[in-house]
Design a binder for these strands. Structure first.
Lengths: 120, 120
DNA sequence: CAAACCTTGACACAATCTTGCTAAGGTTGG
DNA sequence: CCAACCTTAGCAAGATTGTGTCAAGGTTTG
């Protein structure tokens, strides 16, 4: 065997079940290398990542899908921009706007969005 | 009535159901103001946000919980740091590490983590 | 070569997310 | 004052997540 651990050994030292290690790979959170025969090989890096991941999830009480989405955010710049734009929008009370300003307000917003989209 | 729309009117113009508007509030994605009697009031800002949200979810095929987590990431600096740190870790092949380096590598990493934890 | 691994795939199940609907009760406006 | 709203709370059900287990078949190794 090359250098790293097999899936069962990795499961042993990380606390994840073999099943979950395969699942984590499927959802894109890890990417263990393979032997020529297709056996997964877990190097020290992956092992550490796996332990850290457990702690991360526990400590902040978040889901795998959450971390997976964070990864998507990091990898897909377009997505990151759009989500950020949405989140930074005046989360509350644009209540200063009058009924008459309505249409213009919406249009202005539209303009701003287009401008931003243009830059990207 | 103040200025904005009631929940049913907002539902009408945004495409969300009233039920979902309440749900979106519950999961922290919107925060419509209230009348003295407790009725939700949706201003033009919220309405626009709501339309944008539909498009965002559809376009990138992501879930409400995903956007909710993005918000968490934005609001909780600690969480953002930790997730970022995890994601930027050598996602693959630390296969350059020799068997002999193993223990020291792990220990070193451990040291680094402890140091970081200390700072916080 | 046979035991002990590994692979993928499938079925299964609890927990959660998303969504609708209904009930019991306050608010508002004609 | 009554019809038409709004509120919260709850049950319900389909979809997704997280997890186990089992089957059929390749690989490694004593």
């Amino acid at each position: 065997m090359t250098d790293g651990l097999t899936i069962n050994e990795a499961a042993e030292t990380t606390g994840w079940s073999p099943r979950m290690l395969r699942y984590l790979e499927r959802v894109g959170l890890i990417e263990p290398s393979r032997t020529d025969a297709g056996y997964r090989v877990f190097g020290p890096g992956e092992l550490q990542r796996l332990r850290t991941l457990r702690e991360l999830l526990a400590r902040f009480d978040c889901a795998l899908s959450d971390v997976a989405f964070a990864k998507r955010l990091r990898d897909d710049e377009r997505l990151r921009e759009e989500v950020d734009r949405w989140l930074e929008a005046p989360a509350t009370r644009p209540e200063g706007v009058q009924a008459g300003d309505w249409l213009s307000w919406e249009q202005e917003k539209h303009q701003r969005l287009l401008a931003l989209a243009d830059v990207a």
